[in-house]
Computed example of a mutant assay.
Amino acid sequence: MTPLSSAASPDLQTDLIRAGFYPKIVEDIIDEALDGRKPGAHLVHLETHFDQHEVHRHITVLVLAEDILVVTHVDDQQLDEKGKEIMAQISTELVQLSKVTTVATSYVYHQPQNYSTGDPVKELTVGIAWAGAQRIDLAPAGCADAACDADHGYTGTAQQEDLVLRVSAEADGVNAVTAARGFATAMRRASAPRGTETRSPASQASATEVRGRVSSRFGRNTHQG
């Protein structure tokens, strides 16, 4: 296989090749997003979905580099029935680590009554939220009068986009869970380094609000690091 660009770390190259989902394209896009920054901790997460007779895959790659988090997502689409025409869509986002409001982790253990320190995690969910892009959901507004046909404009909600990745030892392997756990630790250290100044009350309130929303997606029993 053609070697990947020397700009990426050897471990990232290896993980992209192992995932086998257009590794050269993914690496080149990440290299462009890094723009000369040296990559640090990373997480490569490949997901496969089955839809009747079709198999759909997509990959998410997270890379810490100095003061930013690079988020890369790749989907592909089959354009013909025989699968000869395929299109890949790649998106990237650069998140300033200073903008990260929460890093949440949810752990699932099998037979917790027999737990001993060092026992493997059965499933891990990592949630990262930042004050970046927002999703706006709109719907026509109405009133209490069922017979009213006036135009009441629109109503809706706006909320920060966040990233949630679920890794399972059964589906992805124990090594994948370990890698996700290690990246979550690196992400926490990078976004909230020890000895930094305390955030302003407004920022703390925003972080609490986002943390609660991410936690609700995980379930009630969520451990946050």
Rank of each mutant, 00 (worst) to 15 (best):
A179Q: 14
H73E: 13
S91I: 08
G219D: 04
D151T: 04
H223D: 05
V121W: 11
R220N: 08
K84E: 14
A41R: 11
P39M: 07
R37G: 04
G118Q: 03
F183R: 08
A176Y: 03
A139R: 14
V126N: 01
A139T: 13
A192P: 04
H73V: 15
D137A: 12
L34D: 11
H110D: 15
V174K: 10
D137V: 12
S191C: 13
E27M: 13
A139W: 10
N221T: 14
G83F: 01
A186D: 06
S191P: 02
L97F: 05
V108F: 03
Q13F: 00
R166T: 15
P10V: 10
Q134R: 08
A207D: 15
N175W: 03
S116V: 15
W130T: 00
P193M: 01
A186E: 10
L12I: 05
V74H: 07
G212Q: 10
V44W: 04
C148T: 08
R188I: 11
H53Q: 12
E54A: 15
L97E: 07
A8H: 10
N221H: 10
D162H: 12
D172Y: 01
R220F: 06
D137F: 03
Y115I: 10
G142S: 13
I25C: 04
Q204T: 10
T185E: 09
R199F: 03
I29W: 00
Q134E: 06
T101V: 09
V63K: 04
L34R: 09
